[in-house]
Amino acid sequence: MALDIYKINPEFRDIMPQEIIDLEEKATWSVKMEKARGIKELPQSKELLEEHSLCAGCPEAAALRYVLSALPVPEETVIVNSTGCTSLMFPHIALHTVHSLFGNQNAVASGIKRVLEWRFPDKQKDVVVLAGDGATVDIGLDYTLQSFFRQEKITTICFDNEVYANTGGQESGMTAKGQVFKMAPTGKKFEKVPMWELAKTSGCHYSVNLTASAPKQVAKVVREAILIAREIGPTYINLYTPCILEIGLSANEGLGEMKDQDKGRFEFYKHVSPEAEAYLAKCKEEGLL
């Protein structure tokens, strides 16, 4: 995406709403930044997510804001998403987003990445998959793992809320054992799928499991994952964004739940392959991190 698509023609400047003028002037587009974009700019800058229609207090909305603030070059990033709560937010993002059929997101992203490499050989285009646990680990597991096996240079971020939330609360593979939901009254019968470990054994060069409780950490992980995906190979982030409605919490209790799980099911896990480790060191020297 050329940043020119946000340059307002002077003839129309007086009729454009302030939020669109801000998008041109105050958003942290990479070309305008003297140093790497980051989460610290969030309070002052125009965000790439205008508004969203998720539930009040939903941690997923906060997590998406952190992710967007951490994209190294948003103007050259394509986001691929899938059906789920997150798909309510993607139409509001001021970036290219591609909505795939449910579960197909990694296959779609692989194709997009390959075509972009062919079409723009001189440009670095990042392709980032953002989908829920149902799309990533249940129905789309085949596509997710195939993209890892094939070493597709894409970043996969799973917003893991451990439930099919927007369809009323069915258990997913990522649901913890024993968990009861409205549509899973007898409780989950088997263990949570350790997707971050599957990602490692399937060829991901970077695999992280964490909660969205610490914005800086989320931003750091996202940036590292995208940089590694550019040069080395597939990367995976499993991000806990609890569905406060389905687990019976109030709008202000999402952060507490994530903090609790920092020491529980989502204790920080990080795998970095030796090639990726070396590349990250190089990125650090070049000021990309």
């Binding site: 020119d4 340059k7 307002i8 023609n9 003839e11 129309f12």
Partner: peptide, 22 residues
Amino acid sequence: FPGPQVLYAWNEEAKKKATLIK
């Protein structure tokens, strides 16, 4: 009602059209 293809200066034709639409 001008749409995105003329509101933004993404190519020379768009810039010219903006002047004409005004």
